Amino acid sequence: MHNPAEPMQNEAVNPDEQLNVRIAWHYYVGNMTQQQIADLFGITRVRVNKALAVCRETGLVQIRINSRLASCVALEQRLLERYRLQRVSVVPSPQDPAQIFRVLGVGVAPTLEEHLRDGCTLAVGWGRTLREAVRELQGKALNEMTVVSLLGGLHYGSANNTVELASSLAGLFGGAYYYLAAPVFAPSEQYRDMILAEPSVQSVLARARQADLALLTVGDLSERSLMLELGLVNAEDAQSLRAAGAVGDLLGRWLDRDGEEVDHPFNRRAISLELTDLARIAKVVLVSGGPYKTEIIGAVLKRGVVHELVIDEVAALELLAS
C-alpha cells in the first residue's frame, strides 16, 4: 500500500527525451515536416521518425480520432442487444495482430476518463491491454482517487503486473493505490487460505468490493496467453484446464463457455476478488479483443457482470457469429 511520492524538483533532465518532445511538438503542433525538423536540429530524418515512434509508444504523444465508423456502430448496437450491456465501443482491428493491445488501449481510454472523478475508487486487473490503456490516458488532478488491484501479482517488476498498473494509474491522477501482496496463484489451497486470512489482504479486498468502477481484461489459453508467457501456467496446466472445460480466465478464475468456474486446482488457489463480489461493483468495464479471445469474452459476458465492453471489429463479428 502506497501513496505515490511527489516528483523530485531536481530530477535529472533526460536529453534524449527532451529532444523527442521538441520533435513531437514541432511535428504535431507546429505542422513541420520531418525533413524540416531534421534540418532545424541538425539530425537525420531517420532520427526524427524514430523519435515520433518513441513518443507514441511511450504515451508522450496521444492521438484521438473524434469520429465513428458506421460498421462499428452497427456492431455495437447488436452487441448491446444480445448481451444487454449499457455501452459498447467497437474499434477497427489492426492489420498487425501485435498492435491489438494498443488499439484497444486507445479505444478504452476515453471511456475510463469519462468515469473517473475525485474521490472514486478504481479497481483494476492486469495485462498488456490495460498497460496500453494507462499509456493512452490523459492525467489530471484527482488527489482523492484510489486505485486498488483485484488480484495478486508477480514477484518481480513487470509493466503488466498488478502493482505497476495500480501505481501508474495512481501516479497519473495523484491518488493512492493498494495492492494484494500475494501471488496470482498460491502454491496450495492451504497457503491460499492463509494468505486470504491476512488482515492486510482482507483490507484490500474490502476496498475492491466497494469500488465505483472496475477495469478488466481477460486471458485465453492459446500460445499467446500472458499466463503461459509468464510461466504462471505451463503447457501441461493449459492442457488440464482445457480438459476441465476452461476457455480462459477472468481475474485468474478459469471459466467454461457458459461463464461458470471450472472444477480445477487453479481455481482453488487463485488470489483475487470473488466473481460474485465483482458482480456487485456499480460499473464494470471489460476491454479485450483478438479472435483467439472470442470464447472467453463471450463466457464473461454470459455471467452478466459486465456493463460496458470495448472490443475490436473482428472479435465483435466472431462473437456475434458464435
Rank of each mutant, 00 (worst) to 15 (best):
E6R: 02
P7L: 14
A12G: 04
D16M: 13
E17G: 10
W25A: 10
W25V: 08
H26V: 02
Y28E: 06
I43F: 01
R45G: 10
R56L: 15
E57G: 04
L69V: 05
S71G: 08
C72E: 14
R82Y: 04
R87W: 07
S89F: 06
V91L: 03
D96F: 03
A98R: 12
G105D: 12
W126E: 00
E132W: 08
A133Q: 00
E136T: 06
L142K: 11
E144K: 13
T146G: 00
V148T: 08
G152E: 03
G153I: 01
S158A: 14
L169H: 12
Y179N: 09
A182L: 05
A182E: 04
Q190R: 15
D193M: 08
E198K: 15
S203G: 10
R207W: 03
V218N: 02
L221M: 11
L226Y: 03
L228H: 11
V233L: 15
N234I: 02
R242F: 01
A243K: 12
A244Q: 10
V247K: 00
G248W: 09
G248D: 11
G252Q: 12
L255G: 10
R257W: 07
G259C: 08
L273A: 09
L273N: 09
T276V: 05
D277Y: 03
I281G: 05
A282Y: 03
L286Y: 04
S288P: 00
I297S: 04
A315N: 12
L317D: 12
S322K: 14
